[in-house]
Computed example of a mutant assay.
Amino acid sequence: MIKLDNVSFDYVTFEKNPGLMGSLYDFFKRKNQKKRAIDALNLSIPDGELVGLIGPNGAGKTTLAKLLTGIIEPTEGNIKIDNVDPTLHWKSFYRNIGVMFGQKTQLSWNLPPMDTFNMLSAIYQLNDEDYEKRLNYLLEVLNLKGIIKTPVRKLSLGQRVKCELLCTLIHSPKYLFLDEPTLGLDIGTQKNIYDFLLEENRVNHTTIIFTSHNLRDIEAISNRLLILAQGHIIFDGSLNSLPVDINDQQKFKVKFLDPNNKTVSKEKVLASSELQNEIASVGEQNMISINRQGMTIEDLVLSIYKEWDKANEKN
């Protein structure tokens, strides 16, 4: 169980006066500024949940992830993960979590991934039998057996991401924290990552919390969605319970032959309510392509935030 009770976090910054005299003044009398990144957050996540965490830049997503993993300590409130306070930095706590933060790689650029896997086995003090069994399983399901002796610099982005996932999961953590796990990957590799994470959750009951700017990630993996804005959770629930309909707000990019002069039209972006009328007008035989463009994270957060803001104004 992950539990946050009235958790807040303030970043402390400093005002800088211009010029040499300003620097001398700041040396003796520096003025502090506080910025609240997380504000009185209460949250419970039962074991085994798949949680998607989204929000605009500056919403507090990364700060929340750092709080949950013990990288920073809350200004106020308490956090417990599996009844352990992350700020105590116990070894038992770190054996229970796996963390993959954006471009913060665990792999050594000039060494093969196998060297990193062996190093992590020593760090987590895994016995040889458990390590070999876990490693072989992960290599198999992530399709990495053919590249583990290749220097990391020669691997594709998708291969490196899969190796990062293996590093994060080699010690069979109970809680997994992922930041943009499919960023920059092609659709096929994204699908492989989705299937792998769902299987890891099913087999090992792993709690997975991930941030993403891709609604496809959220739809494919999560059974619970948290939307963070200005340090507050403005939505907590399933995709089905969203107060806006993602499908209704989808756009379609269409290209077709003009039935009058048979030239290829420029691409048009249409709402779902306009699509059928356009097809009827042009004729199905003249349609060249129809590509769905889902609602963006920014549009979704803005819609939810407006509803949340109105509710708070009434209260």
Rank of each mutant, 00 (worst) to 15 (best):
L64S: 07
D85P: 01
L226I: 12
E274Q: 13
V141K: 05
A59H: 09
V51T: 09
N96I: 14
N204G: 13
L166N: 02
I246Q: 13
L126H: 03
P243M: 01
L166S: 03
K16I: 13
Y194H: 11
A311Q: 07
G294C: 11
I279A: 02
S156L: 08
I72L: 13
Q103L: 01
R30H: 14
V152Q: 02
D245R: 09
K174W: 04
I187P: 03
E284M: 07
G294D: 15
L88G: 04
I290T: 11
N204D: 04
Q249N: 14
K31Y: 07
A59K: 08
L155F: 11
V51E: 06
I45R: 12
L165T: 03
Q276N: 06
K266I: 00
S156E: 01
L225Y: 11
I288P: 03
K61L: 10
L185Y: 06
I290Q: 07
S273T: 11
F9A: 09
P86F: 11
S272I: 07
M295C: 12
G98F: 10
L215P: 08
E274A: 10
N260L: 09
E76K: 13
Y11V: 13
E164P: 06
K310P: 08
G55S: 12
D195Q: 10
I208E: 05
F9C: 09
N83Q: 10
N214A: 15
D309M: 04
L197R: 00
P74T: 07
N315T: 11
S289D: 11
L20M: 14
F14M: 14
G294H: 14
E76N: 12
